[in-house]
Design a protein around this nucleic acid. Sequence first.
RNA 1: CGGGACGUGGCCUAGCUUGGUAAGGCGUCUGACUGGGGGUCAGAAGAUCGUGGGUUCAAAUCCCGCCGUCCCGACCA
Length: 504
Amino acid sequence: MVAIVPAPAVPPGCPRERPEAGTLGCVSREGVTPQSEDFSAWYNEVVVQAELVDRGPVRGTMVIRPYGYRMWELLQADLDGRIKEAGHGNACFPMFIPESYFKREAEHVEGFSPELAVVTVAGGKELEEPLVVRPTSETVIGEYMAKWIDSHRDLPLLLNQWANVVRWELRPRMFLRTTEFLWQEGHTAHADEDDAMRETMWALDAYAGVARELAAMPVIEGEKTPSERFAGAVRTYSIEGMMRDGRALQAGTSHYLGTNFAKVFDIQYQDAQGELVHAHTTSWGMSTRMLGGVIMTHGDDKGLVLPPRIATYQVVIVPIGRDELAERTLAAASELAARLKQAGVRVHVDERTQLRPGFKYNDWEMRGVPIRLELGPRDLDAGVVTLARRLGDQGKEQIPLDRVPEVLPGILDEFQAFLYDRAERFRDEHTAEIDDWESFRSQVSGGWARVLHCGRTECEDEIKADTAATPRVVPAQAPEETGVCFRCGQPSAYGKRVIFGRSY
RNA sequence: CGGGACGUGGCCUAGCUUGGUAAGGCGUCUGACUGGGGGUCAGAAGAUCGUGGGUUCAAAUCCCGCCGUCCCGACCA
């Protein structure tokens, strides 16, 4: 056991007066626009100010800075492990796709053509055939699957690639919808529908696992309605999380493509009877959008709140004092950091001498670091360090210096679990079973509605026109239920309630 | 692609209506004091006012074109 004593009372934080709401002018001094005031402004400010990203030179593009990229790497490492563990091999296909490949699957072209970037000039002259910059790689990979698959013994073929893709976005937002983004795309081919469906659901579960265990996001797994289906897929599944403004975010998708791509790319194999049959394919992806989900799931008025498992820095040590004292506390901080690193903690020592401790506290809180350790002369004399949690709701504690590496992993785990529970509570408090139009309208203005719906596209369109809400997902876990559509009174579809909400 | 707003040191803005020395805050640099919740004082550096043209003795300011950005809408895995 480690003795944890309450720290002395701290003076109240600096009042946060904003001279002019909506301007970025004094942000670095005053903090970000509070979420409650303008969620969208909060998001835009916080991603830049926390140094996760910077704006790219081309509209809709982003520069991911080290503080943000590390988070992506942590997500990536975990997911990549799951993918390999399940027998997939990583590969890398070219980013330029012949336009003709793209045009083979009718729905696929139609769905993607508005978002394509196409290269028509290269090597100083007009190309004979334009090259599409990949928005996703079903088409190129399909071509090679056809080449590599002859026999049922070649199946299943389990591929994955980590890549950047380009989709020309008219309404970009950092992480959530950028013209170029990073993702992982899995592409597999199977002998039959059953096996392909097992794969599709495996991927969905893997995403749900990453979301829950790393991002601390309580997501709902389920199937998309036909209107939200991937262009070219037979069935599309997704994980959906609720952001703190009540809107839904699709944080990962998995598609059963049937034989749609197999037919147009001739992905065929000889079965045990010697018959030539089409393979069943799947594709699934998770992108840097997940980081946007993390930001909007956990952030608060002060800024980011990062789940320890994907936080670039889980702990920041702020040494306090100047001159000889600074030398002493800095040395102690470095030594403590070294011991924490050995204990597997990602730790950073804030050595900036030109900034005062109070500024640093606010700075690291804005940047979402879960745990801050303050190390000043008083702590050193007492042989302790002062610990503050990002959410600040438990006050400060003093922990004996030599015990810090052994207690911190547990504190980080608690913090991680707390974030998940809090997000789940929030989501549940903002989700309601709805059976009439008026309640629906108010419900989707700040959350999700679980409704019986007829499943007709025209009905969905009317709902969308009125409320901006769309069917997010048909939850895999929901109990069976039938009745009439809450909107039009026609018989309900799907055999269960569907989640409607506004989305990103 | 439609509607609206806007481009002025690294960042945010004032100045434009009524043409005449480009101003302020933040940040940066130097020094001193200071240092356990967003420090103080003194000094300094830093701007072809998005771009091209036009009007004028004179344009950040007025006029026209272009480029770009943001917001709303449409569109969107």
